[in-house]
Simulated scan of single mutants.
Amino acid sequence: MNSVKTLNKWANAHTYLTIDLIRMALGVFLFVKGITFITNIQYLEDLISSIDNYEKGMYGWFIIHYVASAHFLGGIMIFFGLLTRWAIIAQLPILLGAIVINFMGEMHSENLLQAIIVFGFCAFFTFYGSGKNSADYFFKMEK
């Protein structure tokens, strides 16, 4: 708990509008990806089907619904800076899976690059937090 407080104090002392705008852009990107996956389930199934042990049973549908809803809801939460670290922690397994899928199936260099960049930003915001221009900071100051 003390490490989270220390990280928050450091982030609030070193916050810049540019970093908050990057966090918001990351949230919008994940939200749009979630909408894309929700409206085009077949595209997500095709991406996941490159895994050899993929089954269209309960396990497969769980993955599809987890990915789509985590991107959709996580994108909204990251955009507003509400429970940012928790929302990003929910994204990390998905992004690692997106990177691994490119090596297990057909290589899509654009998707791989996209997943690596988003994973990097998520790793950064896991440590940095949401910053001063966020709902977390607003609710903390209202106490």
Rank of each mutant, 00 (worst) to 15 (best):
M1R: 06
N8T: 14
A11L: 05
A11Q: 06
N12H: 13
A13V: 08
A13N: 14
A13I: 09
H14N: 12
Y16G: 02
T18V: 13
I19V: 11
L21G: 00
L21Q: 01
I22K: 07
M24H: 09
G27E: 15
F29R: 06
T39L: 15
N40Q: 15
Y43F: 13
E45G: 12
I48P: 14
I48H: 11
S49Q: 15
I51E: 01
I51F: 13
Y54K: 08
G57R: 06
Y59R: 00
G60N: 05
I63V: 13
I63A: 14
H65W: 06
A68S: 13
L73E: 12
I76S: 07
M77Q: 00
G81V: 09
G81H: 07
L83V: 03
W86G: 07
I89A: 13
A90W: 05
L92K: 01
I94F: 04
L96D: 02
I99N: 00
E106M: 13
M107G: 01
S109F: 15
L113H: 13
Q114M: 03
I116A: 12
I117N: 09
G120A: 07
G120P: 07
G120T: 10
F121C: 08
A123G: 03
T126C: 07
F127T: 02
F127P: 00
Y128E: 03
G129R: 01
A135I: 13
F138M: 09
F139Q: 03
K140P: 01
K143E: 06
